[in-house]
Simulated scan of single mutants.
Amino acid sequence: MSGRLRSAAPDALLLPSGATHDASAMADLCPVAMLFVRCRSGISHHLDEDATAEDMSAAISVLARLIHDGLSV
């Protein structure tokens, strides 16, 4: 996924994360990856969460490339 991220958003950061959500359960079954989209003021999981159209477009592009290329992470 990082290669596809770099082509869609060259300045994006690659971050280790302690977030697991459903990924921790799925990791026993298959490879997993999480794609985080930055939000204004770092607000997440709240009604005030807001991401720019540009950042959302980049995330959608990465996901579309993953699907098109066969979902290899």
Rank of each mutant, 00 (worst) to 15 (best):
D55G: 00
L5M: 08
L5W: 03
G18A: 14
R38S: 08
S44P: 14
M26D: 00
R6E: 07
I43D: 03
R4E: 12
H68A: 15
F36P: 00
T52A: 06
C30E: 11
V32S: 10
M26H: 07
M56N: 00
G18N: 12
L13K: 12
S24T: 11
R40D: 10
I43R: 08
M34V: 09
H21F: 11
L15M: 12
L15I: 11
L66S: 02
H45K: 09
L15T: 08
A59H: 05
A19F: 14
S24C: 06
A64M: 06
H46T: 00
M26A: 11
G42V: 14
A25P: 01
D69P: 09
H68G: 13
M56K: 03
A33S: 11
R38M: 04
L71Q: 04
A8G: 03
D28Y: 12
S17G: 04
A27P: 04
M26T: 08
C30S: 12
S24D: 11
S2W: 14
A12C: 11
S7N: 00
H68C: 02
F36K: 06
L29W: 13
E49I: 02
M56A: 01
S24W: 09
A53P: 12
G3C: 07
P10E: 02
D11Q: 10
T20H: 14
V62L: 01
D22R: 10
P10Q: 04
D11R: 13
G42E: 04
D48L: 15
R38Q: 03
S57G: 02
V73I: 14
S24N: 13
I67T: 05
A58Y: 01
A64G: 03
L71V: 00
R38C: 02
S72D: 10
V37R: 04
G70A: 04
I60Q: 06
V62H: 06
R38I: 06
G18T: 13
E54F: 00
G18S: 14
V37E: 03
S17T: 15
L47G: 06
A27H: 13
G70Q: 08
S61G: 10
L15A: 08
A9N: 05
V37A: 01
S57L: 10
S41Q: 15
A58V: 05
T20Q: 08
R6K: 13
L35F: 08
L14S: 05
M1W: 02
D28G: 15
E54H: 07
L13Q: 09
L66V: 10
A58E: 09
T52Q: 01
D28A: 15
D50M: 09
V62N: 00
A64V: 06
A51V: 07
L5N: 02
V73D: 07
L5T: 00
G70K: 06
A9R: 04
V73Q: 06
C39N: 15
L5S: 01
L35N: 02
S44Y: 09
A59C: 03
F36D: 01
R65N: 08
D69H: 07
S2K: 12
M56E: 00
L47W: 14
A12S: 11
A51S: 15
